[in-house]
Nucleic acid binder design. Sequence first.
RNA 1: GGACGGUUAGCUCAGCGGUAGAGCACUUCGUUUACACCGAAGGGGCCACAGGUUCAAAUCCUGUACCGUCCACCA
Length: 746
Amino acid sequence: MEALDTRYNQNEEPDIYDLWEKSGIFTPETSKKRGITDAEAPPFVVVLPPPNVTGTLHIGHAFEDTVQDIFVRYHRMLGEPTLWIPGTDHAAIATQAKVEKILSKEEGKSKYDLGRDEFLKRVNAFAKESHDTITRQIRRLGASLDWSREAYTLDEKRNLAVRTAFKRMYDLGLIYRADRIVNWDPKGQTVISDDEVVYEERPAKLYTFRYSKDFPISISTTRPETKVGDTAVAVHPEDQRYKKFVGKIYEANFCGAQIKVKIVADSSVEKDFGTGALGVTPAHSMIDWEIASRHDLPLVQVIDEYGKMMVEDVRLKGKKTIEAREVIVAWLKNEGLLEKEEDVTQNVSTSERTGAVIEPLPKLQWFIGVNKEFVLEHSSIHGIPSGSKTTLKEIMRKSVSEKQIKILPERFEKVYFHWIDNLRDWCISRQLWFGHRIPVWYRSTDAHGKPNGIPSDSRGVETYVNVEPPKGSDWEQDSDTLDTWFSSGMWTFSTLGWPEKTEDLKRYHPNAFMCPGYEIIFMWVARMILMSGCLLGEIPFRTVLFHGIVRDSQGRKFSKSIGNGIDPLELANTYGADALRMALVIGAAPGNDVTFSEDRVRGYRNFSTKIWNLARFLRMNSRPEFSHGNHKFDEGDRATLQEFEAVKKAVTNHIENFDLHLAAEGLYHYVWHTFADKVVEEAKPRLQGDDSEKAHRAYHLLDHILVDCLKMLHPFMPFVTEAVYRKSHPNDLLTEERWPYIPHVE
RNA sequence: GGACGGUUAGCUCAGCGGUAGAGCACUUCGUUUACACCGAAGGGGCCACAGGUUCAAAUCCUGUACCGUCCACCA
């Protein structure tokens, strides 16, 4: 028998992950065929939240993947056919921005210097490299994914799914194109959705002034430069101060711009704020645009896509908004129109990815209507019968309110419902090059008439929407791409082969479980419910467990810009992946943020060593005669076993309740401070004494408990436990063993 | 302006109705043949504050104060 080193070193063990992968156990069909999981048991299906191909995994991914792997391995050990689907996300805006940055830094070029095709080649090469790194990292952490089903949000199959979805939702009237005020990111040169806007509090000045000397009402604004685009002043209908002006139109020369301002009454105006009168700039404010559409006011765009002024006056033309603001304030002062200047804190909208200040602009974009009624042909969603009229909002709400989807921790339900209540139509088109191209084609009608009988829109453009391009060479495809979350939203079923009617889809959808971070509850989780509900008439998953954010010792998020990133692989190399996993799981109550410290990892590395040495101790005390014959346990042994039974039950219950931190901690304490420190110590005299019979019994007891502990530790610490197990069971895999306690089913 | 979370040992955090817990750090001891990435023993907390419910509260309720997060079109 080979002697074991006193320390466990994952790097020196044979490639255990390779053994698992080759055994086929990560593929449910194989494990079922081999009889490792029950053919009849309902499958436990999970999709990995696909990491963005923007570089490498960070510690947060390691946390997320560990949590999922623990559940997946646990359920597999319960005998359930288990499918955990791996994949990566093209993350359109994030990846494109990243490559643009590299391009500019390393070659001093912009994407326009390369052109669309060449630029996309670069992005794809970058994505490929990231993908390879990421999948290597995921394996190194031990994630038991079915690699035979790996997917990418931008591969062929997913592209077909996306085009099909777009077409169907267009036909249902849910996807439409319209002119709206949208969130324009001047740095990224694209529109973004409301959910990609991040609000930042910044100090600002609130200016109160009149447009001109003879204008009867003063207004307040933090953005005087937009006021050259004002077409109205709105007041509250019951505001006695202004009632007499309603309906009147005033003209003024405002810093060189001729403006025509109508006084309108709108109940959205707060009487008590500022002067109680609101300067309406329909082209550069969401709220103003809405007021304008209610009162049929004209729209004057004064800021362009680069955040520069579009007015003719030389003092302003081509100036950036901030510069224009100074010019206008100086002009107001000069003219004696400025009445007040106050310091305020303002909520500035910025772009999540580029950090740029959002410029609301009027643009023609594609949207998904969340309040639009449509007929849901086939539905298994509680409260929405097949063939009934519904809306996407209702689908999203009912899926959760009818308890078909369980959100954990429960407090996030409230967050989810609140989001739905405030939800507006989802802008899905992006002026990015990297992503799913919108499956819409145009040609102008004046040259070609209407050969397909498709009505042209008011712009004199014929529009063709379909999964495949139209015949004929005079069509031009929409140059925009789709919001990356459009394809992510379909992830639970696009990974299973939709729109084909595959066996996988039948068997594995809805998924059983999902474990994303709470920061993507809207961007991703809600969109999955929307997409799945709309296209399949099904919920995407039954349980979603939100996890918190992993933060550094100062409570900051890990991010490349701060430079506090820790490479999970480096930690895994130093301390072992098992130690890293334990450190991430213990102390992390569901949904709570975790402060990460390397000390903890070190502590659990020591625990790995402890497990290793427990096994080593047993080997050293094994005698040839132990290999045959069973031995009855005596009373003391039975008490020990009874205590152990309680631990098994507690650990199992904790996992069933999604309290992994409690399960892991319970195991840790039992193994170290009860089993090693007490049970083993007390058995030593018997084990090492001359009485072979007694020794055998002691050995038998310790071996029995150790093996069961290894099984229970396995989901948490798969590598050491497998390594140790294989020393005594060279022909078996611990991964294929059954969980040693049957959970109580309610 | 709303909602949610946090406030427990020096540090990081569990516990969430029954006499205060873990890891790390700290002190003392230990040249024991599984393990020093070890063992034994120990110090250290009016569980943010104020009320209330209860036989019993860190744990439930109500307020307050800080810290944090998310949401919101007061210009």
